[in-house]
Design a protein around this nucleic acid. Structure first.
Lengths: 244, 244
DNA sequence: CCAATAGTGTCTTTCAGACATTATTGA
DNA sequence: TCAATAATGTCTGAAAGACACTATTGG
């Protein structure tokens, strides 16, 4: 009820301060692999360990705004980056210094430039999602949730198109699915499937300048369509282990 | 990065206090309809308006713990209530008194008793989800997200079984889907479909004591199976409006 | 020419949805 | 006897997945 009435002894203004941070799981595709933006901590605790980019919310700043700002501070730009809320974490001991509640965000963007470390970090770099170092705080868990969410959203939203350029080939789009899911997909079936989903992609009428690096015909170019949901969805093969 | 280093002027301990609350969207099914637990505010702002149950997190208390406590304080019990995090809301002006970030939770439970208002609320009651009053703060939006999430989760998880008793008939289960989705479903197809999903329900071998109120054979009784995900999912009819 | 890739066609299986049918109960 | 409901059967169409095939390019 948002502090309608403060039960005796629970006026928040009398509490030890709670701080709120946003932490961003920023994903991109580089060299055909899914990569995550991490910053190296310069101070204690966890000095020298990698962590998610993030920081405290500022007065007057909404949560998504704070997430976009933190991302911009680390990467230099927030071009057509899609950003959405992930989850919040507030275990009392998750930060040894004080009570901190973190609201995490998920960001996707096409092939981003190398990050320039913000003023507060020792270093910043992209890391392959399949070869991650151990992270500070509970950031490993947060990152895990972010990857899971991204994999799910590829199934029923056109999210994959935010990982590619303005125009793209069906093969490039397939490369996104393969990188995020970590699975090889059947080229022919994928192709037919994508074109059959209304509003997923629309043809530009153009083709690539030349064929593939190792031969093959020129591919047609597409741009993202106007669909907000994929119908029918592109389901990845059922993972029996996750069902029970 | 969780306050690794505090950029000049941004030490959170120097900030005007931020308070963190949890707000709970508690759902149950009563009289065949989906209902939401609301409390009537006793104080300003929004005195007399209905709001979601919730309150400030306490020192040493994790977020889900706080949500369970708030729910228990309003309903008297948290029996087999399923509880999961929904989203967080932190717009600077969402509470006129101070900066409050709210972490919302979604709770489902079978036919719960009438709530007894907590010490801090004027009243507490179940409200039909299809006839809601205007709510305090941004709680209308939070509640909307909660309902949306519940409708989605019925599709691919066995969540519906948390709305019924230990054992139940297929018709009762269908009643849950119809109440949450607000749609009539085809009895025969639903029946066959539910039994075809591995691990969704398992037979008890028993039947109801008597037939339906208006006649009909005795129905077989089932209990929840061990599936965590429904495969294949029970998709509700595609809503074209939501696709674009 | 050969290997690689783009794009299409075909077949099988699975599943959703419409509908019919049988059996069992209460009123 | 009649109406309502449980449970099952049948049919059609959509879609996924396996696989084959053609066409076009680079080397």
């Amino acid at each position: 009820m948002d502090g309608s009435q403060f039960p005796a002894g629970y006026d928040p203004r009398a509490f030890p301060a709670v701080a709120v941070t946003v932490d961003v799981v920023a994903l991109t595709i580089r060299q055909g692999a899914l990569q995550v933006l991490l910053v190296e901590r310069g101070e204690q605790p966890y000095a020298g360990r990698w962590a998610l980019p993030g920081g405290f919310i500022r007065p007057g700043e909404d949560l998504p705004e704070a997430a976009a700002r933190e991302l911009a501070e680390e990467t230099g730009l927030t071009p057509r980056a899609h950003i959405e809320q992930l989850a919040s974490y507030g275990a009392p001991e998750r930060d040894p210094r004080m009570r901190i509640v973190s609201v995490s965000y998920l960001a996707f963007a096409p092939d981003l430039p190398d990050p320039r470390p913000g003023t507060d970090a020792a270093d910043a770099a992209w890391h392959r999602a399949d070869r991650l170092p151990e992270l500070a705080f509970d950031h490993g868990r947060i990152l895990g949730h972010g990857l899971e969410r991204a994999r799910d959203k590829l199934e029923y939203t056109p999210l994959a198109t935010t990982f590619v350029g303005e125009t793209f080939t069906i093969s490039e789009l397939r490369g996104v699915y393969e990188a995020v899911w970590g699975l090889p997909l059947h080229a022919g079936n994928f192709h037919r499937k994508v074109l059959s989903v209304p509003g997923f992609v629309e043809s530009t009428g153009e083709t690539t300048e030349s064929g593939g690096a190792r031969g093959g015909p020129r591919a047609r170019l597409y741009r993202a369509g106007d669909a907000k949901l994929l119908h029918p969805a592109l389901l990845r093969p059922a993972r029996e282990e996750e069902v029970r």
